[in-house]
Simulated assay, not measured.
Amino acid sequence: MKYCAFLRGVNVKGTNMKMAEVCEVFKNAGMKDVASVLASGNIIFSSEKSAQDLKIILEKAMSEYFNYEAFLFIKSVEEIESFWNSNPFDKNENLHIYAFVGHNEVEKVLMKEFESAEKTENEEGKIVNNNFYWQVPKGNTLDSTFGKILGKKNLKDQFTSRNINTFEKIMKKINS
């Protein structure tokens, strides 16, 4: 079965990794057909194991190899397609759209945080098919109240986010 692992906190705040090394760690952990998409920690691979088992195996392998506390989220091809196809926002060159990958029901936690945050003009959060999407004006991602909430330490093992365009790139690579 084909999967994509979404790593949290890669190549930010001093956690620097070369994707070729990350792919090697995945191969050494028994994954097949391993490839990376972008430098933000998106690893496509094949395995017959369940997503739950893969999370444990790969977090351990990454933590040991890179000497950090690894958090990653494993999604199937169908789940990745759902992220792309369920996007509720129209493309706009002045706005970023993010989708959040995480544990079951993390979308409810994120919506609660979003609803209590101050918002800028055109900033929106929506849940579609159990996926949380956030639209924010370009240049405001890290400065917005919600953007700052996303860095909370108590949420670090719950989710990671990707620009919606990343899902398109992942799907193209999976289907090539």
Rank of each mutant, 00 (worst) to 15 (best):
Ala51Ile: 07
Ser46Gly: 12
Val25Ile: 11
Lys32Thr: 07
Lys27Trp: 00
Ser47Met: 07
Asn42Pro: 05
Lys18Asp: 06
Ser40Cys: 05
Gly30Ala: 11
Val22Asn: 13
Lys18Glu: 10
Asn28Glu: 14
Met19Thr: 11
Ser36Trp: 04
Ala35Cys: 09
Ala20Pro: 00
Ala35Leu: 08
Asn42Met: 11
Lys27Val: 09
Ser46Val: 00
Ser36Pro: 00
Asn28Tyr: 01
Phe45His: 01
Phe26Asp: 07
Met31Ile: 03
Gly41Asp: 03
Val34His: 04
Ala20Leu: 12
Val34Glu: 06
Glu48Phe: 05
Gly30Lys: 08
Ala29Ser: 15
Ser40Arg: 02
Val25Thr: 04
Gln52Cys: 12
Glu48Asn: 15
Phe45Lys: 10
Val12Ala: 09
Ala35Thr: 09
Lys27Gln: 13
Asp33Tyr: 03
Phe26His: 09
Ile43Leu: 10
Asn16Gly: 03
Glu48Lys: 15
Phe26Thr: 09
Ala29Asp: 08
Lys18Leu: 14
Asn28Pro: 01
Glu21Gln: 12
Met17His: 13
Leu38Phe: 04
Val12Ile: 14
Phe45Leu: 13
Val12Cys: 04
Lys13Thr: 09
Gly14Thr: 10
Lys13Phe: 07
Met17Asp: 04
Ile44Leu: 13
Ala39Met: 13
Val25Asn: 05
Lys18Gly: 07
Lys32Ile: 11
Glu24Lys: 13
Met19Gln: 10
